[in-house]
Design a protein around this nucleic acid. Structure first.
Length: 428
RNA sequence: GUGGGCGUAGCUCAAUUGGUAGAGCGCCGCUCUGUGGCAGCGGAGGUUUUUACGGGUUCGAGCCCCGUCGCCCACCCCA
């Protein structure tokens, strides 16, 4: 019984307690209102997907797929993975349900937990939530623009826009990115001795990633590296220009960052991130971009698409740090129901239901028998009134209403008590 | 995967050089036979194999040693 260690939640995974709910609901509601205002519809996908979805979608060379997935085999032997990100599953759902036959674009959003087997630390968990938005079937810059605009609106309406910065870049597409990659390779080829070991590995696997290395030596070298802007073909250049012009028009402040690449393989053209930067530390709060080839990678027809995701926990951490107050999740009950004696107890249960139907939540402690302990609880809970239903009152068809502040009591008929209380609450 | 700090009651934390595991808060009760807040007193709670778990050293371990797990922080990477 007491042998061995105590059972606790799995490493990096946390209970979401009642006290956490107001923050989550506050953010969910804000995001939902804005997203639905732009005609995005909610989708939920399963926690488990075929492992291959992420291998093909996210990319086999990525850290996520290589070492961070919760993967296992079902009893039937099928390799499955707990989703480490939301885009590939939503794209899979879009394809699987033939959403390309709907009027395009199709706009979807989700609130879902993601799973990554990483070493937990501040703002990084093995189970964490994403608020995500995806738009399929829209090749025009308008999709990128709208998504970034909505993302910015969410931060704005959470009163966080002055805390964060939006960084943006273009990665080109199949047509022009290879040229850029080649140019990068040529540039770094004879400088490999000077860069850090991880960067040497990136040189082989994905040169682009060498650009966002933060080692000072590597930074110095990549500062003189060829820039993507010089390699974008005309279409990509125009697309990017349009996105930027829209942001200026919409007064969304952004920082052009030619070293912004992303860890996931599926991105093309526009990529962007939202960062919180304070005293040298920086935390990524959201990220996204365009991914025109993902559907193809998943074996469907080419479907242009774009999307983003916000890290919920990081966002809430920031709200708390800023001291932003959030509303209570539910109305705090103002009435405590105390009961004394068997008949009263039975009648209380029915009373409870009458109040519930009238939309007046009650607190009570039906397991406690003494009036004293019930009142003490009422006091601690801070309810404005206490209804006391004793044996005597139950027999006479009455009930006592006690004002907890003034300690004034009055006896009221049990009949119509719900209405009487309703009136009383309105007066106060 | 790597490095550092930490792990004592539900919570916050004590416990001289290794020498009887404690306090505050919270919880429950009594003083107060059907009436809360304040106060006083008491109780439960670390399972007599109690200090995350398992070993070791010692007459004796919360404290020293080894291992494991977990938490926090950082790297890597990411949201």
């Amino acid at each position: 019984m007491s042998k061995g260690k105590q059972i606790q939640s799995v490493k990096g995974m946390h209970d979401i307690l009642p006290e956490d709910q107001p923050w989550r609901e506050f953010v969910f509601k804000k995001a939902k209102t804005i997203l639905e205002g732009y005609d995005y519809e909610r989708i939920e996908t399963p926690v488990l997907e075929e492992t291959e979805l992420f291998e093909r979608g996210v990319g086999e060379g990525t850290d996520i797929v290589e070492k961070e997935m919760f993967s296992f085999k079902t009893r039937g032997g099928d390799p499955v993975t707990m989703r480490p990100e939301g885009t590939a599953p939503v794209a899979r759902a879009y394809i699987e349900h033939g959403m390309r036959s709907l009027p395009q674009p199709v706009k979807l959003y989700y609130f879902e937990p993601m799973f990554r087997h990483e070493q937990p630390q501040a703002g990084r968990y093995r189970e964490f939530w994403h608020i995500g938005a995806e738009q399929f079937g829209e090749a025009s810059f308008s999709a990128d623009a709208e998504l970034i605009f909505i993302l910015w609106k969410i931060f704005e309406e959470l009163d966080l826009k002055n805390e964060v910065t939006l960084k943006i870049n273009s990665l080109g597409d199949r047509n022009c990115r290879p040229d850029y990659k080649k140019a990068l390779k040529d540039y770094f080829k004879n400088k490999l001795k000077k860069v850090c070991a991880p960067c040497r590995a990136k040189f082989k696997k994905n040169v682009l990633r060498m650009l966002d290395c933060i080692q000072t030596e590597c930074k110095e070298i990549s500062a003189k590296a060829p820039q993507i802007f010089d390699f974008l073909d005309d279409d990509c250049k125009l697309h990017f220009k349009n996105v930027l012009e829209f942001l200026e028009e919409a007064q969304v402040p952004y920082i052009l960052n030619p070293y912004l690449v992303r860890g996931l393989d599926y991105y093309t053209r526009t990529v962007f991130e939202i960062w919180l930067e304070e005293n040298g530390d920086s935390i990524q709060l959201a990220a996204g971009g365009r991914y025109d080839y993902l559907a193809e990678e998943l074996g469907s027809q080419k479907t242009e698409a774009a999307g983003w995701a916000i890290g919920l926990e990081r966002l809430i951490d920031l709200l708390k740090k800023k001291g932003i107050k959030v509303p209570k999740t539910r109305p705090e009950p103002k009435i405590f129901l105390a009961q004394l004696g068997d008949l009263a107890k039975k009648r209380s249960l029915i009373l409870f239901e009458h109040f519930r139907k009238a939309g007046i939540p009650l607190k009570a402690s039906l397991t406690r028998d003494s009036i004293k302990s019930q009142l003490r609880i009422a006091n601690r809970l801070g309810t404005r009134f206490t209804l006391i239903l004793g044996q005597r009152e139950a027999l006479d068809g009455n009930i006592i209403l006690r004002d907890m502040e003034s300690s004034v009591q009055e006896t009221l008929p049990l009949d119509g008590i719900v209405e009487a209380i309703k009136k009383r609450l309105k007066e106060k």
